[in-house]
Amino acid sequence: MWETSGYLGLFASAFGAATLLPLQSEAVLVALLLAKQHPALALLLVATLGNVAGSVVNWVLGRYLEHWQGKRWFPVSPERLAKVQGTYHRYGRWSLLLSWAPVIGDPLTVVAGLMREPMWSFLLIVTLAKATRYAVLCAVTLGWG
């Protein structure tokens, strides 16, 4: 049971952390690594998969965000939206390499959907960024290298 629940908990925390929810998957990953009940590579893959899946949800939300722009409850002003779109247009898809970063990473994945970033390039870059972040965390936690 611990085996399955550890992976499910890590996936859920990584998924949630990639959305706009204020969750931390790193603490869950470190705890599981230190417990030494699961192979580190398996934990790395589960965390990456969950985090990328959450980013895909953000991309989908961004893809359809403008549909609601005229509504009173829309959370972003037209000026702010134009500024964000301009910044993404300036730096392009490579800004997604920062999708792992706290505070800016999750909104970047929403903007990528808004800017109609193709799913293939989105997945490639976001997976690279997030897997690298988790790999570094594994390496530091387990003293690799």
Rank of each mutant, 00 (worst) to 15 (best):
M115D: 03
M115Y: 00
A47Y: 10
K36I: 10
A135N: 06
H38I: 11
A18R: 08
Q85W: 12
T132H: 11
G70V: 08
H67V: 15
W73D: 02
R80F: 14
L65E: 08
A27I: 11
L20A: 06
W59Y: 03
R72D: 05
S77G: 07
G54K: 04
W94L: 14
V103N: 13
L21A: 05
Q37V: 13
M1C: 15
S55Y: 02
A131P: 12
Y64W: 15
R116D: 12
A135Q: 05
I104R: 06
L8Q: 08
M115H: 00
L23N: 14
F122H: 01
V76G: 00
A101W: 07
F122D: 00
V60R: 09
P118E: 06
S99L: 05
M1Q: 10
T4N: 14
S5A: 15
C138V: 08
T87W: 15
S13M: 11
F122R: 06
Q37F: 11
T141F: 07
V57G: 04
M1R: 13
E66M: 15
V103Y: 05
F11P: 02
V28E: 04
L21D: 13
G105S: 07
L123V: 06
L33P: 06
V46Y: 03
L44V: 10
I125C: 04
G143M: 09
K71T: 09
A14V: 10
L65W: 14
P39M: 15
V136I: 09
A53L: 04
G54I: 01
F74P: 05
G143I: 10
L23S: 11
T127E: 07
A112Q: 00
L33D: 09
N58G: 02
H38N: 12
Y91D: 02
